[in-house]
Design a protein around this nucleic acid. Structure first.
Lengths: 221, 221
DNA sequence: TGGAAACGCGAGCGATCTCTCGTGTTTTCC
DNA sequence: GGAAAACACGAGAGATCGCTCGCGTTTCCA
C-alpha cells in the first residue's frame, strides 16, 4: 500500500458528477427489479448491469460489491420505512377504537410494501448477506419495540414476556398477510387487506378489549 | 413395486443392494441437515456428500442431480404429511367446539414440522427448483381444498370466493406461526403454539360461531 | 484550453459449484 | 470360483459468477 499520508479513512469520498448520481439511481432501480424477480443470491451483478443498460465494469464504478447494492437499496427503503412507521405507530389515544388503530397502521404499511415489493423480497429471503441481516434485525426489533411500548401502555399489568411474544406474533401475522396481499391485485388484494385487519383486530381484541373494564369485544353498530 | 416399472422406458430400473438403500437413507438424512442449515441453493452437493461421509461420485451413483435429492426428500415428507393431515383435517362433527378442531389440527402439524424442520426450509425458500415447486403447490392446494370443504360444510351460505380466501389466510397464518415456533424451544415454543391456536380460533370464531344460532364469544348481527 | 478526474467499456481472472469418468472394490448369482 | 453388476472413490472438466484491469471518453475547473 504505497499511498499517501492521508488519514486512512474507510471512505474516500469520491466526487460524483450528476451523471454518476443518475447512474446510481438507474442501477438501484434495476437491482430492485432483478432482486424482486429472482431474489438476492440468484441475482447476478451482470444481470443488474444489463437491466440498467450498462457494463459490469460501470456497475463496479459505483458499488464495491454486490452486497453494497443491496445495502444501499435496503438502507434507503429502511429510511423511508422508518418515517412511515414513525407516524403509523405513534403513541395513540387509549380511547381510540382498536379497529381504527390497526386499520390505519395496516393501511400505511401495506401501501408502502405494495409500492416497494423489493423490500419484502430483500427482507424475507433466507439468502440475505450479513450486513443486510443487521439492518433487517434493527428494523425488526425497532418495530417490535414500538409494538411493545404501544401494548404495554394499554396493558400495564401484562407480563413483559407475553407482551414481547404478542408483538412478535403481530409482526409475523402481518408478514404472512403481506405475502398474500402481494400475490393478488385489485379487488382481491383489497379483500386480503381487510382480512389482515380482521385477523389482527380479532387477535388483539380480547387482550385490550377489557382494559378499564370495557368488556365489549366488537363495537356494536 | 418389485420390478415391473418397465412400462416407462425412460427409467432403467437399477437393482439396488441393501448397501445402496442404506446409502440413500444416509444421503437423504445428510441432505436434510444441510438444507435446513443453509437452504437449498446454498447447499452444495459436495457438502451433502461430506456430511454423509461419502465421496461426490458416490452421491451421483444414487441421484442424477441435486434437484433429485430435494425431490426425493420432499416427496417422502409430503407422503408422510399427507397421511398426517388426512387424519388432522378429516371431516369433523359440526358440534365439536372450534377450539378443539383448531387445537388438534395445529398440534398435529406443529409436531410434524418440528420433527422435520427441513420441510419448512424446502417449502419456504424462494430458491426451490422447478419440480419442487410443483410438489409444493400440490400440497398447498390440497390443504386449501381440505380447508375449503371443511369450511363450506360449516358455512354453506358463504360465497365461494370468501371461503377460498379464508382458507389461504388460515394456511398463511399457520406458516407465520410455524416460523416463530421453530425459532424457539421448550416452554417458549409451547407458548407460541398456544398463540397460534389463539390467532386461528379468534379469526375463525366470528365466522362459524353463530352457525345454528350458537352464540360464540362474539355475537354480531 | 489543457490536464486531471470521473465515467464507461468488456474481455477475462480466479473461485466455486455441479456433475462426469476412469478405475478399483464389494456383492450377487450361476 | 468367476463373471457381471452394483458400489465407491476423487480428480477434474465444464459452466457460472463476482469482480478486476487496461484503456478510451466525457466532464469539470483553473
Amino acid at each position: 500500500m504505497p499511498e499517501n499520508a492521508e488519514t486512512e479513512a474507510k471512505e474516500q469520498p469520491r466526487r460524483r458528477q450528476a451523471r454518476g448520481e443518475r447512474r446510481i439511481a438507474q442501477l438501484l432501480e434495476a437491482a430492485a427489479t432483478v432482486f424482486t424477480t429472482t431474489g438476492y443470491t440468484a441475482a447476478s451483478t451482470n444481470a443488474i448491469a444489463r437491466e440498467a443498460g450498462v457494463s459490469p465494469g460501470t456497475l463496479y464504478q459505483f458499488f464495491p460489491n454486490k452486497e453494497a447494492i443491496a445495502i444501499e437499496l435496503g438502507g434507503r427503503l429502511v429510511h423511508e420505512m422508518q418515517t412511515a412507521y414513525g407516524e403509523a405507530l405513534a403513541p395513540v389515544d387509549p380511547a381510540t377504537p382498536l379497529e381504527e388503530v390497526v386499520g390505519a397502521a395496516v393501511d400505511r404499511f401495506m401501501a408502502f410494501n405494495c409500492d416497494h415489493p423489493v423490500f419484502f423480497a430483500l427482507m424475507h429471503g433466507p439468502d440475505i448477506p450479513g450486513r443486510m441481516a443487521e439492518d433487517h434485525d434493527a428494523l425488526h426489533t425497532g418495530l417490535v419495540n414500538r409494538l411493545e411500548t404501544l401494548m404495554t401502555s394499554l396493558l400495564p399489568e401484562a407480563p413483559q414476556a407475553d407482551v414481547t411474544r404478542t408483538a412478535h406474533m403481530v409482526l409475523g401475522l402481518y408478514k404472512a398477510g403481506l405475502e398474500l396481499v402481494l400475490a393478488h391485485e385489485g379487488a382481491e388484494r383489497e379483500a386480503y387487506i381487510r382480512e389482515v385487519k380482521n385477523v389482527l383486530v380479532r387477535y388483539l381484541d380480547p387482550l385490550v378489549g377489557d382494559r378499564l373494564g370495557r368488556s365489549g369485544s366488537t363495537a356494536t353498530p
